[in-house]
Design a protein around this nucleic acid. Sequence first.
DNA 1: GATTCCCTTAAGCCTTCCTTAAGGTTGCGG
DNA 2: CCGCAACCTTAAGGAAGGCTTAAGGGAATC
Lengths: 233, 233
Amino acid sequence: MMADHILLVEDEKLLRRSLAFNLEQAGYQVTSSSNAEDALEIVRRDPPDLVLMDIGLPGMDGLEALRKLKTQHTFPVIFLTARRREFDEALGLELGADDYITKPFDLPILIARIRAVLRRIKNPAEAAIHTPISVGDLEINPIRFVATLRGEELNLSPREFDLLHALAIEPERVVSVDSLINQVWGAEYEGQPQVVYVHIRWLREKIEDDPKYPERIITVRGKGYKFIPHFDS
Amino acid sequence: MMADHILLVEDEKLLRRSLAFNLEQAGYQVTSSSNAEDALEIVRRDPPDLVLMDIGLPGMDGLEALRKLKTQHTFPVIFLTARRREFDEALGLELGADDYITKPFDLPILIARIRAVLRRIKNPAEAAIHTPISVGDLEINPIRFVATLRGEELNLSPREFDLLHALAIEPERVVSVDSLINQVWGAEYEGQPQVVYVHIRWLREKIEDDPKYPERIITVRGKGYKFIPHFDS
DNA sequence: GATTCCCTTAAGCCTTCCTTAAGGTTGCGG
DNA sequence: CCGCAACCTTAAGGAAGGCTTAAGGGAATC
């Protein structure tokens, strides 16, 4: 079993050294880099299994570079950030970050997150459920339990979130009410379809421009519902 | 359990590499190719389980090559396409594409589709019901629950949709009323044939130029009905 | 303790379905 | 050529089904 390869991008020297040391102690192979340019080059030569990146790198170039990289290789990214707000402002989610952790952070917690993310990408079944997805102007991050529409965070209840996720992960495909109940409520739920109707109603209230004439969650009478991606115009 | 073998045909180098990398991560065996000619050769030598193909390859030769290939080996195809319109114009479905996915796409979603398509071809029963079909100027996509005639979406009720599907999946062949009842209403339905007549009537209203003189759904007296493909002229 | 969430219920609407029934059409036997 | 029977077409109406929506109370969460 090869050690997983982590690319650490952090400009502050002490923190960089300390992290690299500790991650190596934890059994990872670590490559460090203090700026985005170097990181880019490293990724090109030898794609890592995971990138650990300080969001507050000098200049916004780091984020921009990452955006480019993510279109080429899809490796998981964990951001280090001073405050949650910083993460949101930097649109980390849009960039496909898999997770973030706020400073000051706890080493065991960081390592646990790293392990969780790595485990996910190695298990396709789990990955499908937990990986952030983006469909049109909608983004869903099942790990952080955050969904955004046109960049704005939606305030969804757990049920609404799961329901939306179940629909959006199969865009344009009709998902039967039975299947939705299975995915969202679980197989053992003795479900009347009514439940689904109600939550669809509330979801529409939150994601449709005009819930009366839904354009994203479409009813397919007798068959179920389907999610239609919409793009910013 | 052998890994499924995917042939990736994509001319853009970075995207090709990235996809290959990620699909391998997901547990598939991937062969890449940047053009149709190579792809042809690869298929001849070692037929893949699935082909993932950029629809915007240089020249239309890719599509033409694929058309030829599909007559030799039957493997499923998923198209990558920039816009949905592009797919329609290229008549991807007519070429036997099993699915398409529009860029920019999300890796988890792509992988989910790949898995769905592979599962389908391994289960013949499921395959017949769920595979998109194209007969003449009519296209039926049971997964999206969309039927189009000359590119225009038909507004069919569930019964009408199923009925049309049952007929169109065996073009030119006469399907008995009993068989239609079985397929559309289910075996347990205590069916009077009357029901079928009525729905045929409504279907004709929606897909025939002149319902009075049907050209697509033809009555074969005493035997049943048959669907005759028509092409744009 | 307040608030959010969630399920149930029930009223109402609209589509879809099936039935019925009144013709047409076709083919066959006389 | 005629009449009949079987088969199909077609229109119309009522019934059912499926979905929407609002409201209420209990549960869960903070």
